[in-house]
């Protein structure tokens, strides 16, 4: 499971839905795995405003990942101004494609390539543990918890 997905996941129990403590779920005994995937700059630009940055910082601390800055980056910081050498000015259209910054690549690494391979996700409200095996989280609830 990608760190990105964990940033959107809540406890499945109805009683927890309305509480703040049910998000984010806390990883326990987590084994991380890097799964490389193609950079998708426009996806990151689309999703960045939807990231709960404080929750992301918290999860990074819990997983022992490098500490993130206090505030979410501005969308403008994802792209550098196009590098257009003087002699290719006539190809302005192609040259105008903005270059992904290091920040964008770091976010890609953290959100889309860093995954939880095995472990548990624990609800901070009810304490329910969701098992993760081979990257797949089990969110089936026994009927008395639905």
């Amino acid at each position: 499971m990608k760190i990105l997905t964990l940033n959107f996941l809540t406890c499945a129990r109805k009683a927890c839905k309305a509480t703040n403590a049910a998000f984010p779920l806390h990883p326990r005994d987590a084994e991380l795995e890097i799964v490389e995937t193609d950079l998708n700059p426009l996806f990151i630009r689309n999703i960045l405003p939807r990231i709960e940055w404080d929750a992301l910082r918290e999860i990074c601390v819990e997983l022992g990942l490098p500490t993130l800055p206090d505030a979410a980056p501005e969308p403008a910081a994802l792209f550098a101004e196009p590098i257009v050498p003087a002699d290719t000015m006539q190809d302005a259209d192609e040259g105008a494609e903005k270059q992904p910054t290091q920040l964008l690549q770091d976010l890609h690494r953290l959100l889309l390539e860093t995954t939880i391979a095995t472990g548990k996700l624990v609800c901070g409200n009810c304490g329910h543990e969701y098992a993760v095996k081979e990257g797949i989280a089990n969110f089936l609830l026994p009927s008395h918890l639905v």
Binding site: K2, L9, T10, F23, T37, E52, G135, N138
Partner: peptide, 24 residues
Amino acid sequence: LEKEVEGDLFLADAGQGVPFRPGT
């Protein structure tokens, strides 16, 4: 899993709800 699809997979029953925060 065998096909190594790119999406994240959940073993879940949609009839029990959708466990993601609003506006995901």
